[in-house]
């Protein structure tokens, strides 16, 4: 009897130890994994982010070093129709240069994104909060670990606010057996922007459409009507086109934006780029880009870029870029840039 009781106790003790292990073992992606963040049990919370650091060596200006981004993602998705996402970003957290010792004097904090998604049905989601402005593709995936160059094309940020605060309706529908994605947004107030961005919209109404022609090719179109906060009540109208093709590890992409206004002294402005990426081995890639940008107070700038990228793991990328151009001193100066970025 005593042996039986001891055996029962042993079995009970083993069960208490082993059952939780078995339960955990059923799902293998709980906890932390590089590039997907930390999942907090069954709460639906996920914490993660990305970091990037870069050294810039312009041809006719002092060199500089900065921890350019440290972004923290907080996601909540417990399987209901509501989904929360926020990105708190610390920019230029650490910086140094030829005229400045290493320090935190340039550090700035900002809520890059802060929104609640409500899933209405399979084709429609309502988003309320601060989000990336859907103009082209680059602005929506601009994080350093996701793009191939340290230098960002001028056309992806110069003519509009990269963020909007307000309401967005977005989703996708099936058109001729292919996916058609849409985003329609309105920006009417800064009250839901936890930290007003630079060059933000005063008010805006816009849309972005994207159609997947096949598994490798997608085309998009953008339109927006807006007033920028820092410029006196000038109303701008923007139209854009974007195309992206990818096959295996080859990529070709292009974005064009054209902005006009109702102010006689502000000329219409067009900007754009075309970029190609080709693998040279399993982890090494070569990048080429041409961009042009009309400027209000200068002649049209043009820049050519040659880059090398090393991606040892999907969430990690090292980059080296060299760009050279004309009339590009203000927006995309000649020089080298090297960077490291990681999704964590």
């Amino acid at each position: 009897m005593r042996v039986f009781t001891l055996f029962n106790l042993l079995v009970a003790a083993l069960s208490m130890v082993l059952i939780p292990i078995t339960a955990v073992a059923n799902e293998v992606d709980g906890g932390y994994r590089l590039g997907t963040g930390y999942s907090v049990g069954e709460t639906g919370l996920r914490v993660g982010g990305y970091a990037s650091t870069q050294i810039n060596v312009p041809r006719s200006a002092p060199w500089s070093f900065e921890v350019s981004d440290l972004s923290l993602f907080l996601t909540w998705d417990n399987g209901s129709r509501l989904h929360f996402f926020s990105e708190l970003e610390a920019g230029e957290l650490l910086s140094a240069g030829s005229h400045q010792s290493l320090g935190v004097q340039n550090a700035q904090f900002d809520f890059e994104r802060f929104y609640l998604d409500s899933l209405v049905n399979n084709n429609l989601t309502v988003r309320l909060g601060k989000f990336l402005t859907p103009v082209g593709e680059w602005n929506l995936i601009h994080a350093a670990p996701l793009v191939w160059t340290t230098f960002r094309p001028v056309a992806t940020q110069n003519l509009f606010s990269t963020h909007a605060s307000g309401l967005m309706l977005h989703g996708s529908v099936n058109v001729v057996n292919r996916q058609f994605e849409y985003s329609v947004y309105g920006d009417v107030t800064d009250n839901i922007d936890p930290h007003r961005s630079k060059n933000s919209f005063d008010n805006a109404l816009g849309a972005h459409l994207r159609y997947f022609l096949n598994d490798t090719l997608q085309i998009g179109a953008s339109a927006a009507d807006f007033v920028l906060h820092d410029l006196q009540s000038t109303r701008y109208y923007l139209a854009g086109l974007d195309v992206a093709w990818s096959y295996k590890k080859f990529e070709l992409s292009s974005e064009l934006v054209y902005r006009t206004s109702d102010h006689a002294n502000i000329p219409s402005t067009g900007q754009g780029f075309v970029q190609s990426v080709a693998p040279i081995s399993q982890h090494w890639f070569i990048v080429g880009r041409y961009e042009f940008f009309e400027q209000i107070q200068n002649k049209t700038g043009q820049v050519g870029l040659l880059g090398l990228a090393y991606r040892p793991l999907p969430p990690i990328i090292w980059k080296l870029d060299y760009q050279l151009g004309s009339h590009n001193e203000t927006l995309a100066p000649d020089g080298f840039s090297a960077s490291f970025a990681i999704l964590f």
């Binding site: 590039g35 997907t36 996920r46 996402f85 929506l140 995936i141 996701l146």
Partner: peptide, 9 residues
């Protein structure tokens, strides 16, 4: 990676 950046697992 892109979906993760957009909060989708």
């Amino acid at each position: 990676n892109i979906q993760y950046f957009n909060g989708i697992s």
